[in-house]
Structures are given as structure tokens and as C-alpha cells.
Amino acid sequence: MYSLHPAHRKNVTKMQSVFQTAISGILYLVCILISACAGSGSSGFDARAKAEQNAIAKVTKEGGCVDVENTVICAPGVNLANVSGINSDFLVSENAARLSIEPVSGARVSCLKNSDLQVCQIMVSVVPSDFAEGTQFFVSAHFKDTISWSNPIVLRPISSPGSSLSAVLTLETGSIMESSGFQIAVLVYGENVLLPENQGEVPLLADFFPELVYAVAAIEVEIVPNP
């Protein structure tokens, strides 16, 4: 065991006293320090997901389109004329192509819950105008605070070709309990391109390789029993 020179013992004793005082002081500081903590958070590297979310927030607020590293994200109803980065093969007329989505951004929708299953369903409908024949539309959903977009499902004609298209989105009620805010993305594909069927959930819209995305955001879901 090491022993200090007698001349230093007094200093060490003093130091121990100082340390004891310091421990009390630091513990006090810790209490002050952490008493301010009122929340939680996280950090990570998924910058592309943030860029997509920023784009959705921007088009929801300001309209128009945003190009996120070759994935063009637009607000519903936007006129595609002069929007760069869009494949024009699926546009009949560059001046007139547009699409509307129901529900709209900020809407509150009812999600019909089946009593036997932990899921509920909502209807999504779109009305495309002046898209080329063969253009295909899929819909995917994303809950706030989760990291994935749901497996896209195809939007089919409600009645006859050329009119509105619709799909029933099935949502897990567990996710809705955690957060009622969610987003919808309508993915547009031309003819003879790779479609996102059975691709599963992915963190990025870009992972579905759409040629164009229409997004609506800040939709509030309310679960209601299916009569």
C-alpha cells in the first residue's frame, strides 16, 4: 500500500474534506440539473426521412411541389405544369394534370373498428385528372412518431374508368392509441414500371420508387365502433 509523505498527509486530509464537501455540492448540482429535465428525446442518422417529412410539411403549408433527391412530393390539387423532375410520360396534358385526395390535410376522420380485431379502417379516395391511360395510383399511410410507411395498396375505380378511385386503408389501433396524427401519400406510377406491391413497410417514400407523390398531413383519427 502506498503511503504519503508525512508533509502531505495534512493536505490529503484537507483534500478528503474538500471532496466530501464537493460530493454534497455536486449532488446538489445534479438535483438542480436534472430537476429541469421534463421530457425525452432521441437522436439518429436517418436524414433522408427528415427531408421527406420537411417536404411534406412544406407542401402542406405552402402548396406546390418539392424535389427530395429525385422524389417529387406535391400537394393535392397542384397543377403539374412547370414542375421539374416529373416524368411527363404519364401526363396527357402538362397544363392540366392534377389530383385531389379525400381526406384533406388537417381533417378529422373516423376509423371504423372491428370489435374482433385490433385494426380499424378508413376510406381514401382520389380524383385524378388528365393523367395518361395506364397511370397507376397507390396509397400508403404513415403515423406520426413511427418510422415506416405502410405497404402501399392500389386505388381502384369506384364505378367506371375515368372517375374517382378509392381504397380502404387498414390501420392498427395500437398505433392510433400512441398517436392520432397521421399522413397519407398517393404514389403515382406510369405504365410498365416496377410497382410497390407486397413491398412491406419501409422508412422512406423513396423506397417505393414512385414517379410522383401527393401527400396530405396532420390528419386526426378517431376510432369508432363499426355498427
Binding site: I34, S35, D145, T146, G200
Partner: peptide, 29 residues
């Protein structure tokens, strides 16, 4: 093909836990 779904549920579960257990303002911890 279930890995993305697993990560989503893992993320949601951890988010829920951290929010649930985070100190209230003024609480020590």
C-alpha cells in the same frame, strides 16, 4: 420482409416507454 415492421414496433414501444417514464417538470431523476 418483417424487419421493417419489427423496427417500427420497436421504435413505437421505446417512444412510449421514454415518454411514460420521463420525469415530470420539477421532479428529480
Amino acid at each position: 420482409d418483417q424487419i421493417a415492421a419489427f423496427y417500427q414496433k420497436l421504435n413505437a414501444a421505446v417512444n412510449q416507454l421514454t415518454t411514460e417514464f420521463a420525469s415530470e417538470e420539477g421532479e428529480a431523476g
